[in-house]
Computed example of a mutant assay.
Amino acid sequence: MRVGRGPTVRLRRLAAELTRLRRESGRSREEVARRLGVATSTVYRIESGHSRPQGRTMRDLLDLYDIGGSEREALLALARDAGRRGWWHAYGDVLPGPYVGLEAEAASVRNYEPLLVPGLLETEAYARAVVGAALVKDPAEIERRIAARMERQRRLTGPDALELWVVLDEAALRRPVGGPPVMAEQLRRLQEVAVLPNVTVQVLPFDTGAYLGMGNPLAILAFPDPEDSEVVFLENMGGELYLESAEQVHAYVQVFDHLRAAALGPEGSLEKIRSVEKEIAGR
């Protein structure tokens, strides 16, 4: 992105976090500017993502909002990374993870999932089973995680609805997460969402055999401002990887293109989902 043409993805993420912290502190922009000895316009430019706070200003903001420990270190790292192109990090103690914030800002998401239904399409019961399998035992934390997933789904409707293209391995349809009744309900949910004008769902059937990209979930996020580079999101047990270089993004776009070319078309995929749902429901 060229300087002066608007915020990058990381600047928008940092801007959102600093705005949230200010609001939670109960302070106005004018008060923050006065306490830091800067112009109100400076605070506005930071919170709108048009300026990256320099080291001293960033530390002063975190001091003012009383942010310490790992959250402080994560935000300082994010501020440093906002000046660089491409990054590898997971800020799990700032957000549930940076992915949710990126998704909230995206215009479109292309998503491949080999084993599970993606969070944007999960029912509450399915989500509860997935979270429970992650060994989360605190009931309050489970409910917060589920509520966050349900909130994310608001992006699928409305005037600025997210363009979502999902490719699912048939294994994601047949794995009885939560038991047959929960899975049957989830498959009915997929049928409902798949007919939305902004949603495309394709299934890679078992008889496809081996295929390019098999078993490695990925998401490609694109943003409203064409000056903002697309982001590839990869996740494994070791953490989260975010790729932004043109070469890396292009490589994964090609992988996704191969996946959707190998999959059943939208109508055939809908028939496959209906068929599996009938099997699981015993109809």
Results as ranks from 00 to 15, higher is better:
Ala161Glu: 06
Leu14Ile: 12
Ile46His: 00
Glu277Leu: 06
Arg144Ala: 09
Pro266Gly: 03
Glu113Gln: 15
Gly97Ser: 03
Gly83Leu: 12
Ser51Phe: 05
Pro205Met: 11
Gly282Trp: 11
Val249Met: 03
Glu267Thr: 06
Met1Val: 13
Arg175His: 04
Leu102Glu: 04
Glu163Cys: 06
Gly158His: 05
Leu243Thr: 13
Gly4Ser: 11
Trp88Thr: 09
Val231Gly: 02
Met214His: 08
Pro7Asp: 11
Pro114Trp: 05
Ala39Thr: 13
Tyr44Gly: 05
Pro98Ile: 00
Ala194Ser: 15
Ile67Glu: 00
Ala184Phe: 09
Val100Lys: 05
Ala210Cys: 07
Ala125Phe: 08
Gln186Ile: 04
Glu47Arg: 07
Val38Asp: 00
Ala148Pro: 02
Ala104Cys: 05
Asn111Met: 10
Ser51His: 13
Met150Tyr: 03
Glu230Leu: 06
Val253Arg: 15
Asp60Val: 09
Glu247Asp: 14
Glu124Gln: 13
Asn216Cys: 09
Leu116Glu: 02
Ala147Glu: 14
Ala15Ser: 14
Met183Lys: 15
Gly83Ala: 13
Arg155His: 04
Val249Leu: 06
Ser269Gln: 05
Glu279Gln: 13
Ser51Glu: 03
Val94Thr: 15
Met150Gly: 03
Ala263Tyr: 06
Ala133Glu: 09
Ala262Glu: 11
Pro176Ile: 06
Tyr91Arg: 12
Glu143His: 00
Glu24Lys: 11
Arg128Trp: 02
Met214Tyr: 11
Ser28Met: 10
Gly69Tyr: 02
Gln54Ala: 13
Pro217Val: 10
Arg72Cys: 10
Leu78Ser: 10
Leu95Met: 07
Leu102His: 12
Asp66Glu: 14
Val195Gln: 04
Pro118Glu: 04
Ala246Arg: 15
